[in-house]
């Protein structure tokens, strides 16, 4: 029997755990066709709550399934990996969940197996992208609309948009990427299938920010080694470096940084 589930990771975990304890096979519904090949005979879809009730009726509660701490640990370990660009991500996540069930959640979290290491790396790559985009997105404001142009490598558009919507609740947020534009305002999100490059939103030369940046630097404490640790030298903006003799500065609109992020 195959249990399908919706794309929430909590559901994925619950289904996986239920499926395992009841000897079910389980797949992610979007990858169903791929995984079905040669193995699956019959497909049944369940509402997760219904499935839990059935499971309780048949097998009573299992400690593993209802152990919140372990669920949270496993959830934390795989949650961001689902946004990774790798097409095999769900198969890997499922393998890792199976390992957690067969051995222990701790076995997976301590990254002893190759698969758990791989999922950990995927999780980290997505986390890094989220962190960089949150840090280096630069907005231009016009008529209460905040606009920026970003390049996404993984599927983190929703996370980034929601983050900025929460950060700027009074403004509409527009994030344009190669072929799409994501718009968020007052809790509502819309995606348009075209990249917006409005001339109105062209990045202005930012005197205020340049003044803040230049005034923050203490020349007596110059420490290129540490600066390079944070941002490799090849991504430094040569133009700024040349102008000031010693300055480095980053912004998402910089050609070099765009390479860094993608």
């Amino acid at each position: 029997m195959i249990v399908t589930f919706k794309n929430r990771i909590e559901s994925l975990l619950k289904c996986a755990l239920l499926g395992y304890s009841a000897n079910y096979e389980f797949v992610y519904e979007k990858n169903l066709n791929k995984l079905m090949t040669g193995t699956a005979k019959k497909v049944e879809g369940y509402d997760i709550d219904d499935l839990i009730l059935r499971h309780e009726a048949m097998y009573k509660k299992t400690n593993f399934l209802y152990n919140n701490e372990k669920m949270k640990k496993l959830f934390g370990f795989v949650s961001l990996a689902r946004f990774h660009k790798d097409n095999e991500r769900f198969e890997l996540i499922i393998k890792v969940i199976r390992q957690a069930l067969a051995k222990n959640v701790d076995f997976v979290v301590s990254q002893i197996s190759k698969e758990s290491r791989k999922v950990y790396e995927m999780n980290r790559q997505v986390m890094t992208e989220i962190h960089r985009l949150k840090s280096f997105a630069r907005f231009t404001e016009k008529d209460k609309i905040l606009f920026t142009n970003l390049n996404f490598e993984h599927n983190t558009q929703d996370i980034i948009l929601r983050y900025f919507m929460e950060k700027y609740p009074e403004n509409a947020v527009m994030i344009s990427e190669r072929t799409k534009t994501h718009i968020g305002y007052k809790g509502k999100i819309k995606t348009v299938n075209e990249a917006i490059t409005l001339n109105d939103f062209r990045q202005e030369k930012n005197e205020l920010w340049n003044a803040v940046y230049d005034s923050s630097y203490i020349s007596a404490r110059r420490n290129y080694k540490q600066a390079v640790r944070f941002m490799p030298k090849k991504y430094w903006n040569n133009e700024v470096k040349k102008r000031e003799g010693h300055m480095i500065q980053f912004g998402i609109q910089d050609t070099k940084l765009t390479q860094f992020i993608t």
């Binding site: 949150k134 803040v212 203490i218």
Partner: peptide, 17 residues
């Protein structure tokens, strides 16, 4: 906190100081 930029002295810029 989030670092929005880095200075040549190795520190990051997070606040308008």
């Amino acid at each position: 906190g989030i670092c929005h930029s880095f200075l040549p002295d190795g520190r990051c810029v997070t606040l308008f100081k």
